[in-house]
Design a protein around this nucleic acid. Structure first.
Length: 260
DNA sequence: ATGGTCGATCCTCGA
């Protein structure tokens, strides 16, 4: 099963590239972030035409996540499952079961600046994700894939310069500890299961020629439960998709698992 | 040359 996460930075702006890429790469499950569109605007028909079912949790101008699958799309749930009196104000998470794997597509808040209200929202968001995982799944035994744009670089191999990014969001100890807590539930960062080396990124700022300078970060993650991770066959960042006409600032992360 | 982005939207904000 080929599972992909891709922050497309507006599905409206990216639909042509996404369609062509699906045809070339044939993912079984494509998890999208930042659709930036309403429910009504979501192009379900475009994915149907390619042989996929689709589910969307969208709001409009910002955020929005979707799951596109050709191996089934069942038990779809949008938002947090914790029933808290303050539901997430943003459309940032969507769950579905695809081909026997419980999948979540996540768009973790950016945080803006350390200490900003949005930074505290980000940390709270990651805590709610952790608690939902603990309460609603069993990563020790079940096939689970929690994927998306986590807006956190797990360690210094995942950033182009620790010095340049010191004190900024995406690298602070509380953010990294929040990711470690997720992993401690029994998940595996499957990219790091395969590759040790630094300098392998999934996102590059549009500004300042960051892509050609290799100034990026690895913030798009595939977190698989241990039983699924043992079946991983291959994982790669398709950095070619960051090139050419009107790319997203994120590249797709493709993970293959030897499951039917 | 001392800057250099993009997308959605109300001409600024968020990333």
């Amino acid at each position: 099963m080929r599972i992909v996460t891709w922050n497309v930075n507006s599905l409206k702006a990216r639909l042509g590239r996404v369609e062509a890429w699906i045809q070339a790469v044939q993912p079984d499950v494509l998890c999208i972030q930042e659709t930036k569109m309403t429910e009504e605007a979501f192009p379900h028909e475009a994915f149907t035409a390619l042989g996929y079912e689709s589910a969307h949790n969208g709001e409009g101008r910002w955020n929005g996540v979707a799951i596109i699958s050709k191996v089934g799309l069942d038990d779809v749930r949008a938002g947090f499952l914790d029933g808290r009196s303050d539901p997430d104000p943003d459309a940032r998470i969507l769950w579905a079961t695809c081909g026997g794997v419980r999948v979540a597509t996540c768009y973790v808040p950016n945080g803006r600046e350390v200490g900003h209200d949005h930074y505290h929202y980000k940390l709270d968001w990651l805590t709610r994700l952790h608690d939902d995982l603990g309460a609603n799944t069993n990563p020790e035994t079940d096939p689970i894939a929690i994927v998306g744009d986590f807006n956190v670089a797990p360690d210094d191999r995942d950033i182009w310069s620790a010095a340049a990014l010191e004190g900024l969001t995406h690298v602070t100890p509380p953010e990294r500890q929040a990711i470690e807590r997720l992993i401690d539930l029994g998940l595996v960062d499957v990219f790091r299961q395969k590759y040790d080396q630094p300098g392998l990124f999934s996102w590059w700022d549009y500004r300042g020629g960051a892509f050609y300078k290799k100034h990026g970060m690895r913030i798009d993650l595939v977190l698989a439960s241990a039983s699924l991770a043992t079946k991983m066959d291959f994982v790669v960042v398709d950095r070619n998709e960051r090139k050419g006409e009107k790319p997203s600032d994120h590249a797709p992360v493709v993970a293959d698992f030897l499951v039917a």
